[in-house]
Design a protein around this nucleic acid. Structure first.
Lengths: 199, 199
DNA sequence: ATGAAATATTAATCTAGATTAATAAAAACC
DNA sequence: GGTTTTTATTAATCTAGATTAATATTTCAT
């Protein structure tokens, strides 16, 4: 049975089958257990300290995940775009309130799984365990690289790397959030940009 | 069949069965495919840019993973102790030379898997996929927390958090490596320690 | 135990990036 | 389309942490 949405789902399927050889039925199960929803730009999907986070696959658009500290200061920890997974993993897996806030930077369409459906999915075939193992593994590798950058790069190097890694995002996301992601102040990022543009 | 080493392996088994319900046979397979080796303090297990990294489970002792940059400057990215997994995941999974150097901080005993044996292990039972999925997932959660600390904590906060997270390590590991792990200079860490001791 | 090498401390100076505050430019709203 | 709100720029000042260099301490090899 071919899924009704299969045309829109092509790029997701390409992504899934990149590492694991899923059958038609498995793919159907995947979409069947996921729930599609839409959010408007600037809407908050997950509120810090309130509901637990679902596991989110972004179909279209851009989401921003941030940590809000004790003095209500926002620290951006991730941007996600088309085909990226996001969500507060800890909140999701252990059903505790999210420590992050997740907000739409553009209108977005997402597929989400709650813990129950995620467990059903994993239980339905070991291929999903494998897929998520590899997904987390790759994510871990890039998190390690980011830590190296944090420790050893200057603000300028971090910014240039960001531009390389997320070429589109500068046009979509307010600069102050990019500064926060890089761990620098918006004022300093503005100075940096001026300096770089004069080169 | 009870494994000969089973007494020494108790704490590893406790760790494995914490998240996944492994059978006796599965545990046997685990130890059968892993290779035990011993290293002396200060020995380098994995050389940056040379061999690919195995996947390493530390049975006893302390390993340090560091990234050596273009100008041969060392950036410590992880300490591992008893029961921790370590290794250059990317190098291991894709069979490319390690970008990290892994060095023994104490005499160590490790169990290692090469890619072939890791794949055999994962293929032998979906329980291993599940175990590694959860392992990577948890590791991801703590990497995210570390990124938040990197972005938002002062050197002092980072150091205090380090002491809480790794209470024993300060006595084992030269201070300059701890400074590197925190992303500060050894000189500044020394100043910090003096300031803190006077409180 | 003794000397050589590695590590840690201390003090002086310097700088990348923070902070504050005022102005300019963009977005958002009715 | 004008007004309010949010975001970005610019400039002046400040500080956490870096750098350099000299001294003290610890570790290691013989």
């Amino acid at each position: 049975m071919i899924n009704k949405d299969s045309i829109q789902h092509t790029s997701i399927i390409n992504n899934l089958t990149k590492y694991v050889d899923f059958s038609e039925e498995e793919l159907d199960k995947f979409f069947e257990l996921g729930e599609t929803s839409f959010y408007k730009k600037n809407q908050t999907l997950v509120h810090k300290g309130k509901e637990s986070s679902p596991f989110i696959l972004i179909k279209k658009g851009c989401l921003m995940t941030s940590y809000i500290d004790e003095v209500d200061f926002r620290h951006v920890i991730q941007f996600g775009i088309d085909n990226w997974w996001t969500g507060d993993l800890n909140s999701f897996m252990n059903n505790v309130p999210s420590i992050y806030s997740i907000k739409a930077m553009t209108d977005v369409e997402v597929l989400t799984w709650n813990k129950v459906n995620f467990d059903l999915l994993c239980a339905s075939s070991p291929n999903f365990e494998k897929y998520f193992r590899i997904l987390f593994q790759n994510s871990l590798i890039s998190h390690q690289k980011r830590i190296i950058r944090n420790i050893s790069f200057s603000a300028e190097q971090k910014y240039l790397t960001f531009l390389k890694n997320y070429p589109r995002l500068e046009l979509i996301v307010p600069q102050k959030y990019i500064a926060s992601y890089l761990g620098i102040t918006p004022v300093f990022l503005s100075n940096l940009r001026k300096k770089l543009s004069g080169k």
